[in-house]
């Protein structure tokens, strides 16, 4: 590896990696990548888990290695840190918009149906198909939907 790599370049590459469970957003937008350190010897990517038991974290780690390898960056180290704890406040506004379009109500105080924008909704279950989601139903258009929980 002789090429010079800038931090920005690495961030750009990482933003090409979709979240394995919600491919509408990438891992940068999800807020799990906390830092990137580049020196002559290696690239270190520092990530933090969304939930302690999120099964996607291992996949995210593997995908970082694979994707950077495909860019001919071999000397990569992924480090997981716990502090500061991940929060949905780190999900960008742009990403929230993408979630909504994808059919998942983004984390917010006033939960709105991603289909018809009605706020006349009810919680079906506090838990959903992934650790970060809960199940809701719209009482106007009657569609069930996933809600990305505030965390």
């Amino acid at each position: 590896m002789v090429t010079f790599l800038s931090k920005d370049q690495i961030w750009n590459y990482l933003s090409e990696i979709p979240d394995p469970e919600i491919p509408a957003i990438n891992i940068i937008e999800l807020g799990v990548v906390r830092d990137v350190k580049v020196d002559d010897a290696q690239v270190e990517v520092i990530i933090t888990p969304t939930y302690s038991g999120c099964p996607a974290m291992k996949m995210i780690e593997d995908n970082i290695y694979l994707h950077l390898k495909s860019k001919n960056i071999d000397n990569v180290k992924v480090t997981t840190i716990l502090s500061p704890a991940w929060t949905t406040d780190w999900i960008t506004e742009e990403a929230k918009e993408k979630l909504n379009k994808y059919g998942i109500a983004p984390p917010q105080k006033e939960i709105a149906c991603p289909q018809c924008a009605s706020q006349n909704v009810e919680c079906i279950s506090q838990f959903g198909s992934t650790p970060c989601k809960a199940q809701y139903r719209c009482k106007d258009c009657r569609e069930p939907f996933d809600y990305f929980k505030c965390h």
Binding site: P49, Y51, S52, G53, C54, P55, L82, I124, S125, Q126, F127, G128, S129, P131, Q135
Partner: peptide
Amino acid sequence: LEEDIAMTNVALDLVGQSRS
């Protein structure tokens, strides 16, 4: 079904915490 999912989600968090 909802509770099946709820209990396994809580289980995942707890196993995750134990791993830490």
